[in-house]
Amino acid sequence: MESKLKYYLQVADNALILSHRLGEYSSHGPFLEEDLANTNVALDLIGIAESILDETGRQEGLGRTGDDLAYRRNETEFLNCLLVEQPNTDFAFVMVRQFFTDAFHFYFFSELTKSNDAFLSAVGYKSLKEVTYHLRRSSEWMIRLGDGTPEANAKTTHAIQTLWKFSHEFFIENAIDLEMKNAGIGVDLKVVESNWMQKIREIFYMSKLSIPENNYQYSGGKNGVHTENLGYILAEMQYLPSKYPDAVW
């Protein structure tokens, strides 16, 4: 697969896998309104993923559909960052994971609008409308969680301590990112990282939350090397198409 299409998959897979995790959380929310908001974000993300996967299939020209790319690739062919595949441990984990990803999406799609690839630029403009709302929601939740009760602050601090090590993979440039940036197709991840850090500092300050001292960062997802979580996600997600390969749903 050519580099540009792998770049497409990096963008699509973050949205697809996070949407899956949010889907798993349906009926587990702390109250009904929040349960529905969560599903709403899941729907936006699967919509973003679907449009990119469909286009990837078209441009690849091998007859694969968006569904084929979602349901018939193996773990090593998924190029999402490790953060989005982390489990729904509790509401604090769900929301910290969401906040980190929403902030990334907001600044990433803002930059992507400048892409010289017409499709990616359009994806940037279209997605920006949705992720602007996502970021507002998760930012407000971070403040409620951090600057509310001591129990919530402690749970959120624990989630941040656990997930921080997966938070910078978004900005660790791999060979595809570099090639796409140089071609004017991809974004400059340093710009995205700088904006992201500023947003995190601002919201953490308002939330009375801290950035962990241990800044060791994991990566691998964008190159197809994942945590153990992804295998289980795909085992469920791809169950029917794998078991009944001839069926059309």
């Binding site: 702390p30 509401f91 403040i143 409620r144 969680l145 009760t149 749970k155």
Partner: peptide, 11 residues
Amino acid sequence: GAWVRATALAS
């Protein structure tokens, strides 16, 4: 979800 509802009210 009790702690989430509590912090939402307290925040």
